[in-house]
Amino acid sequence: MTDEAFQRPPDSAPFALVRLLQDFTLEANRYVDTAGGRNDMHRTDLNALAVIMRHTAKGLVVTPGILRRELNLSSPATTALIDRLDSSGHVVRERLGPDRRQVQLRMTPKAFQDGSAIFMPLSRHLDAAMAGFSPEELELVSRFMAAMVDATIAAREETSDGGPASPTPPR
């Protein structure tokens, strides 16, 4: 495969958009690392809380197995993560079912309070940045970002299913 397959004109709109998405992802990761670190929380801890929050908002039960799959962790790493979140007061384990073997993970009020404190500065700055755009512009960007998320999920799933990890060169 040649390098030409990966090169686009640096001034093209798609290249500039992809670069901005990369920059945003990098800066968002830096924010999570910095803000989480100041609160003795690892990126994985915050990602776990986000997974639990997202599933709970949909009315779904969150189990250690769901967390393991969503975060791509081993079983021992998942147990260590849940132990950390339990010890810090962010998550509780609740037994479910008639035999009480299934464990459900639930966020505590402390998790919501700490999460709000961690992400409030980011939320404030994002709100200020979005205030300069019309509702129509925000709708367009929302549709664009949803499409980018869907494309990223599709690429991840393709890669995890053993599909091609890189583009096939034209023949």
Rank of each mutant, 00 (worst) to 15 (best):
M1R: 07
D3M: 04
A13S: 02
V18L: 13
L20D: 09
L21D: 02
D23R: 11
F24L: 14
L26R: 13
L26E: 12
E27N: 13
D33P: 02
D33E: 15
T34N: 12
A35M: 11
A35H: 03
G37F: 09
T44E: 08
D45L: 05
L46M: 13
A48R: 00
A50L: 10
I52V: 15
T56G: 15
K58C: 08
G59H: 11
V61G: 06
I66A: 03
L67V: 08
L67S: 02
R69N: 13
R69P: 01
E70W: 01
N72E: 09
L73R: 06
L73T: 02
S74V: 11
S75T: 15
T78L: 05
T78C: 11
D86Y: 08
S87C: 00
H90T: 00
V91T: 05
V92K: 14
V92L: 12
R95Q: 10
R95G: 03
V103L: 15
L105A: 08
R106C: 13
K110Q: 13
F112P: 00
I118F: 08
I118Y: 03
S123E: 06
R124D: 10
F133E: 06
F133A: 11
S134Y: 05
S134R: 06
E137W: 04
L138H: 02
L138T: 02
E139F: 04
L140Q: 11
L140R: 13
A154P: 00
R156T: 07
D161R: 09
T168Q: 04
T168F: 00
T168P: 02
P169A: 03
P170V: 01
